[in-house]
């Protein structure tokens, strides 16, 4: 069996035993350890508070040398999440990947990172969007130029996520 699948099994068991605040994790399909479904609870005192956002974590076979990809399947309006739901934060980028030259290199993916590290970065992203490198340019622009409209749009997503 591949080492990555053993590590992921251990990690999943660990997350179930000691849950990280604000998240729950499980498998999309019990036979595929490389695809996780996570539920991200909107952090308190942010516009996303009260939301239950579903996302998929897609791990490569060479995890943890390379990071997983994370994609929200619940609609979520945020400058660092593109319109397809892909999360664009530096910790999910491989260090060899120089096309995102704007980031501080120490924020890149390291093999010692865990799913927990990723999820904590996602919480920090929801609390503190990074305007310098928006994945959703419209959301970034709206947040800057028309905050009332931005708030309304996020509130809509929060409401919809509660109904899912």
């Amino acid at each position: 069996m591949e080492q990555s699948s053993l590590l992921l099994k251990k990690q999943l068991a660990d997350m179930r035993r000691v849950p990280v605040d604000g998240f729950s994790a499980g498998l999309v399909d019990d036979n595929d350890i490389y695809k996780w479904e996570v539920l991200v609870i909107g952090p308190p005192d942010t516009l996303y508070e009260g939301g239950f956002f579903k996302a998929i974590l897609d791990f490569p076979r060479d995890y943890p040398q390379k990071p997983p990809k994370m994609k929200f399947i619940s609609e979520i309006w945020h400058p660092n999440i593109d319109k397809e739901g892909n999360v664009c934060i530096s910790i999910l980028h491989d260090p060899g990947d120089d096309k995102w030259g704007y980031e501080r290199p120490e924020e890149r993916w390291l093999p010692v990172h865990t799913v927990e590290t990723i999820l904590l970065s996602v919480i920090s992203m929801l609390t503190d969007p990074n305007f310098e490198s928006p994945a959703n340019v419209d959301a970034a622009k709206m947040q800057r130029e028309n905050y009332a409209e931005f708030k309304k749009k996020v509130a809509q997503c929060v409401r919809r996520s509660q109904e899912e």
Partner: peptide
């Protein structure tokens, strides 16, 4: 510590 995170700990560096 920063140097290690940037140059040593990532794969393929």
């Amino acid at each position: 510590a920063q140097y290690c995170e940037q140059e040593i700990e990532p794969m393929w560096k």
